[in-house]
Simulated assay, not measured.
Amino acid sequence: MSGGIEVGGEPEASDSMRTFGAFVQGLREHAGMSREELGERVHLSKHSIASIELGRRLADEQFVEMAEPALGNTGALRKAFGRVGRQPGFAAWFRRWAALEREAVSLATYECRLVPGLLQSEPYARAVFGNSIPPLSDEQVDVQAVARMERQRMLTERPNTSFSFVVDEHVVRRQLGGAEVARVQLDHMLGYAQLRNVEIQVMPLDCQVHAGLDGPLALLETPDAKHLAYSEGQQTGQLISDAKEAAILHRRYATLRSQALSPLDSVSLLERIRGEL
């Protein structure tokens, strides 16, 4: 989301991902199954199976546990999965969410700490990673910043996906990294606010009601109309797939949107804050 746990929106396949994908394809073909047939067994589309086999999508443990019996139940798939290398900027608890995020039909984010990762300018992202404790090396900061910028390409490369953001006003007023970084960051957000598939709303400081007091959250809707949520804390994150729990968080976000400034008024506020710097 906003911290140091990003992965590129459509990351370049690593050698280990390509190797694992080829292994899946080999087992599938040996079993005489089409991608569509395997997809039915593991509850994924044939396109998702293709992405895994081509090394473009990182498989997760759920896929492995469902695919193993379908592909011979020899244990070979589990062993191969254990050798899949992580992508730069990829945290273990973020893996499943990142995979779901790349296929979502809508994404929503509420933040009260930092500008959401999908809206961060590169200078702002570098300021975020520069404040990490324990400190990151220059190379680590570079890797994280590149991963964040790559993930951000989703906003422009997926015009049919809806992106919604609610951000507390104090977040956009905080001059993390200094006044110049703050100016660049506000310009960055204002640029994204012009996209038809992006809505940015600011929760004003003088608002007397607030549905997001339990902290930041991210929500998505899958192509098959499932609603999921993701909650991130210090050094950890949780994917919430239980339908009832996810529904509660989606209702909270809907209330947040009704309490925040409209997208048009939010842009006006961002412009005023930018003019004050």
Rank of each mutant, 00 (worst) to 15 (best):
A211S: 14
K79W: 01
F94S: 13
R126V: 08
L269G: 03
M154L: 06
R174W: 10
R18Y: 10
V209K: 14
I52P: 01
G39A: 14
H227K: 15
E150P: 00
R113D: 14
R41V: 07
R86M: 06
E68R: 08
A99Q: 10
E61L: 09
Q175Y: 01
T236W: 03
L220V: 05
Y230A: 09
A179G: 01
L264H: 10
E221L: 07
L205Y: 04
E271Q: 14
T109F: 06
R83S: 07
A218N: 09
N197S: 13
M1H: 15
A179N: 07
G212I: 13
I240L: 15
S2V: 05
A225M: 10
P135K: 04
R35M: 15
L256S: 08
E271C: 07
G130I: 00
C207F: 01
T161W: 00
S16V: 14
A225W: 11
W97D: 03
E169K: 04
R272M: 05
P159V: 08
E111L: 07
D15P: 04
V184S: 06
F90S: 09
A13K: 06
L219A: 06
F63M: 11
E29S: 09
G191W: 09
S16R: 14
F90L: 10
A80H: 05
H188C: 11
S106Y: 03
A225Q: 12
D168G: 02
G32F: 05
L270K: 01
P123G: 03
G55R: 08
E36L: 14
R183Q: 06
P134Q: 02
L155Y: 01
A98K: 04
L249A: 04
I49W: 06
L38C: 13
G32L: 05
A31P: 00
R251W: 06
R251A: 13
A260T: 05
H250L: 10
